[in-house]
Design a protein around this nucleic acid. Structure first.
Length: 546
RNA sequence: GCGCCCAUAGCUCAACGGAUAGAGCGUUUGACUCCGAUUCAAAAGGCUGCAGGUUCAAUUCCUGUUGGGCGCGCCA
C-alpha cells in the first residue's frame, strides 16, 4: 500500500476500534480507488465486511463509523449504498507523491516487499539443436520481465537456463551435422529421420569445415561424431545466447544436463530414489512409483537399453536447485508439457520436499498471424519463424510488448501487421509516444523547481494522474507476487492515457500562471520518471524522440 | 475416455469478490495560425457461452454443461 492508503487503513481501523470496540480488523480493512471518481478519491467496503460480525446493516455501520473518520489528509467522507465509505482527500495530500518520486528517481516503485526471498526461475531452456523460434519468444520475454519485476519488488530471483545436452537428440544433432559436412564435399549423405534440417546445422558443418578442412572425413567415425556433438552444441548455444541478448533477455545461470551427468548427480539421484524405496524393476526397466504421489501412471527412469529417460536428469536438476539453497522453484513451460507437471511434482514430493517447492507456469500457444491468416513457416528459411526474424521485422520493443501484455494462460494470435505498424494502432507506440511527448515538453519548458507541497493540481485529470502514479509501487509488488507482467503493461497503458488526457485539457506551459505552471511541470517530471521505470521493467525502451 | 487452459462490444483485449462491466481498433461526430494530432473530447455498440450454487455483493469463487486449443511414449 502507498502512503495515502496506509494512512486511510489505519484511520479506518482506529475508527472501528473506537466505534465498535473491535480489535485486529486490520486484515479486513481495504481501500481502493473507485472507478468513478464521483464516488470519492478512495473508498472502503469495511462496513459490508463487518455486517455479519456486528449483525447490523452495512449502511448503518458506515454512518456510525463516519463520525470517527477524521484526519488531516481527509477533506470529507460520504456514505453510499449499500454501505461504501467514500473519502475525498485534502488538496495536496495526493500530490505529495510527486516529491516521493523525485526523492527516489529511478528507484521509484522499488521496495523491499519481497524481503530478499530467493527464487529460481527456469525458462526458455530450448534444446541446443536449433534456433530459438516464436514458441520460445513468449516465455523468454515473460521470464525476463518477471525476474526484473521481482527484483524491483525486493525478491531475489535467479534466471536459469537448463541446457538439454545429454539426450539422444544430441546424437541426432551430430548425425545431422555429419550429413551436412559430407554434403559440403559432394559426398553421399543422409539426414536421419528425426534429424535436424535447419539452416543452422548447415552453418555448423560449414564452420567445422572452415576450421578443420576435410580432416574429419578421415577420422574414426566415433571420434568425429563426438567432436561434432561437442562443437555443434557450442555453436548452437553461442547463437542462442546472441539471440537472447538481442531480445534483451539475460540469464544468471546456465545449467548443463551433460555436466549433471558428469558430476554423477543423475546416478546419485537414482540411487537415492532406490534407497528410499520409490522405485521398482519391471520388463528390464527401472520405474518410479509416481502414482503413489499423485501421478496418473508410473514412470520409467531407466529404459531397457540402460539409458535414462528425459525425466531422470531433470529430477537431478531439480534436486541440484534445492541443494544450491533455492526453496522456491518456478518453471516456465510450454502448455504442451503440462502433462509432465504431475510427475515432476511427484518426484519432489517423494523426495521429501515440501508442497509448493515447485510451481510451474504454463505458457499457452502463440500463433503468428498476418492479414487474418496463420503464418506457419518463415518465408526465408522454410522453418519455424525465429525470434531474430520476428524482432528484425517488428522491432524488439513491439515483440516484447505483445508477448508481455497478455495473460500467460490465454493463447493468442500475434498479429504481425499490427506489431509492425508504427502508428496509433500499436499499443506500444501509444506508451512510448507519451514518454517522448513529455520529454519534448520539458525540453521546451522554462526551468521549474521542486516545491514543499503542491496545492494547485486539483482538476479531475490531474488527480487521476497523481493517484495512478501513487499506485505504481503496489502494482509492481502485485505483478511480482502473481508473476504477471501483463498487469504492468496495463498500468503503463493507463498511465499514458491519464497523461494524454490531462495534457489535452490542461495548458502546461502558461507564463501567465507561473505557480500553476511550476506544479504542472513537476507533475510531468514525476510522470516521466514513473513511465520510464515501468518500461524498464518490461524491457522496453523509453525514447526521448520518435 | 481422462487431464490442463480458454470463452467478456463486430475485432484484439482489461476489470485485488465491489458501485452504471472498461480501453484500443473499426463505425459516426467534434478539437491544431495555440506546449509533439502517433493526441484529445464525444456517440453508438453487452442476458460477461449456457444452467445452477456460495455471498450483503459474482465477469471473478464452486458444481455441471456446450464450444475451441493442448496433452495423455521405455521421445525430448
Amino acid at each position: 500500500m502507498n502512503k495515502i492508503e496506509t494512512k486511510l487503513v489505519s484511520v479506518i481501523s482506529d475508527a472501528v476500534k473506537k466505534t465498535f470496540d473491535l480489535d485486529s480488523v486490520e486484515g479486513l480493512v481495504m481501500v481502493e480507488i473507485p472507478r468513478d471518481n464521483a464516488n470519492g478519491d478512495y473508498s472502503s467496503n469495511i462496513a459490508m465486511r463487518l455486517a455479519k460480525l456486528l449483525k447490523k446493516k452495512p449502511f448503518d455501520i458506515a454512518n456510525e463509523l463516519k463520525e470517527n473518520l477524521t484526519d488531516d489528509v481527509i477533506d470529507h467522507v460520504e456514505v453510499a449504498m449499500p454501505g461504501f465509505i467514500n473519502f475525498w482527500m485534502k488538496k495536496g495530500a495526493i500530490a505529495d507523491v510527486i516529491n516521493t518520486v523525485f526523492d527516489k528517481g529511478e528507484d521509484y516503485g522499488k521496495s523491499d516487499f519481497g524481503k530478499g526471498e530467493k527464487y529460481l526461475i527456469e525458462y526458455v531452456s530450448a534444446n541446443p539443436t536449433g534456433i530459438l523460434h516464436l514458441g520460445h519468444a513468449r516465455g523468454a520475454a515473460w521470464g525476463d520481465s518477471t525476474a526484473r519485476i521481482m527484483k524491483f519488488a525486493g525478491f531475489d530471483p535467479l534466471r536459469e537456463y537448463y541446457i538439454n545436452d545429454a539426450g539422444n537428440q544430441m546424437d541426432m544433432l551430430a548425425l545431422s551435422i555429419e550429413a551436412r559436412y559430407r554434403e559440403s564435399y559432394g559426398l553421399d549423405f543422409e539426414i536421419p529421420e528425426d534429424g535436424y534440417q535447419g539452416e543452422d546445422v548447415k552453418n555448423v558443418a560449414l564452420k567445422i569445415r572452415e576450421a578443420d578442412g576435410d580432416k574429419w572425413l578421415h577420422a574414426p567415425r566415433e571420434e568425429m561424431l563426438a567432436y561434432f556433438k561437442e562443437e555443434g552444441e557450442r555453436l548452437e548455444m553461442e547463437r542462442i545466447r546472441l539471440d537472447l541478448e538481442y531480445y534483451r533477455c539475460e540469464f544468471d545461470s546456465w545449467i548443463s544436463e551433460a555436466k549433471l551427468v558428469a558430476e554423477d548427480r543423475v546416478t546419485k539421484a537414482v540411487a537415492k530414489m532406490e534407497e528410499m524405496g520409490l522405485t521398482y524393476e519391471e520388463d528390464g526397466a527401472l520405474w518410479f512409483k509416481s502414482t503413489e504421489f499423485g501421478d496418473d501412471k508410473n514412470r520409467v527412469l531407466r529404459k531397457q537399453n540402460g539409458f535414462y529417460t528425459y525425466l531422470t536428469p531433470d529430477i537431478a536438476n531439480h534436486i541440484y536447485k534445492v541443494e544450491r539453497g533455492y526453496n522456491k522453484l518456478i518453471n516456465l513451460w510450454g502448455a504442451d508439457h503440462h502433462g509432465y507437471i504431475p510427475r515432476m511434482q511427484a518426484a519432489l514430493t517423494a523426495l521429501g520436499y515440501p508442497k509448493g517447492t515447485l510451481e510451474v507456469d504454463l505458457i499457452q500457444m502463440v500463433r503468428l498471424v498476418e492479414n487474418g491468416e496463420e503464418v506457419k513457416m518463415s518465408k526465408r528459411t522454410g522453418n519455424a519463424v525465429t525470434i531474430r526474424e520476428l524482432c528484425d521485422d517488428v522491432g524488439v520493443d513491439a515483440a516484447r510488448y505483445f508477448f508481455l501484455c497478455r495473460a500467460l494462460d490465454t493463447q493468442f494470435d500475434f498479429d504481425l501487421g499490427l506489431a509492425r505498424s508504427q502508428t496509433n494502432d500499436n499499443p506500444v507506440y501509444y506508451v512510448q509516444y507519451a514518454y517522448a511527448r513529455i520529454c519534448s515538453i520539458l525540453k521546451n519548458a522554462p526551468k521549474y523547481h521542486r516545491q514543499a507541497e503542491y496545492t494547485l493540481l486539483n482538476t479531475a485529470k490531474e488527480t487521476d494522474l497523481l493517484k495512478h502514479i501513487n499506485e505504481f509501487t503496489d502494482t509492481v509488488n502485485d505483478c511480482a507476487v502473481h508473476r504477471s507482467p501483463n498487469k504492468l503493461c496495463n498500468y503503463a497503458q493507463k498511465l499514458a492515457g491519464y497523461f494524454h488526457s490531462f495534457y489535452g485539457s490542461c495548458k502546461v506551459i502558461d507564463e501567465t500562471q507561473p505557480e500553476l505552471m511550476n506544479e504542472r511541470l513537476c507533475l510531468l517530471e514525476a510522470t516521466k520518471i514513473t513511465l520510464k521505470n515501468c518500461l524498464e521493467l518490461l524491457g522496453i525502451e523509453a525514447p526521448e524522440k520518435m
